[in-house]
Write a protein that binds this DNA or RNA. Sequence first.
DNA 1: ATGTCAATATCCTATTGA
Length: 262
Amino acid sequence: MSFTIATWNINSVRLRAPLVAQLLTEEAPDVLCLQECKSPVDKIPAEVFAELGYVHMIARGQKGYNGVAILSKQPIEDLGDKDFADLGHARHVAGRLENGVTIHNFYVPAGGDVADREVNEKFGQKLDYLTDMRDWFREHRPEKAILVGDLNIAPREDDVWSHKQLLKVVSHTPIEVDHLAETQESGQWVDVTRADIPEGKLYSWWSYRARDWDAADKGRRLDHVWATADISNAAHSSRILRHVRGWDKPSDHAPVLATFDL
DNA sequence: ATGTCAATATCCTATTGA
């Protein structure tokens, strides 16, 4: 069986429910993982998605900030969530499909503006969140699992528009890249997107602040699809839907997709 | 490159977060 998973930081699921519906209609992924829903779970417009066949949803939410949801055409068992680094935020939820595949949906803290935990508490929280992820996956070695989400780090030089100019910018600093690498190693996660598309610049986020995001093209690959080694070979056809960033009233993130033959 | 966008609280403007 082949199934396609998509991940998308939606930046308000209520405001952009029509865009979610458009993506579901045009791409028909089996599973869509959303981040930054910015909504309590009971106010997510699940009925809009159910009408399109996505009758199963597992979600965690809070008022105004954060929030993650997994929409699925197939039944998905709620495996719970973990409040990594004890921030009291809704940033993770996990589910299991009937084929036995576990899905982790993450929204890693953005980390604020200054890349120094001594003066910026949010940066420390981001590093602690990643360290807690690392320790947890060391303790609970994932198998037959997919991890997706807005990890808020662009690890490779070709994951950013200018490696040199972003070395001190939160999302691409060496300490963040190191922390992300340790998390990836602890779960023996394979970066599916880069296994599929190993060469060339690849972005999933473009700032709202650019006058012309498309022309400037100063993007970063913050959104990721990882899989454990036992199923990563089944992945193919990875895509980042850049054109979605150009939709009316868009999210600043584009959806990232991968297909697995399992 | 201090620009744009969204949610909230208090109210139609400021603050916070990204």
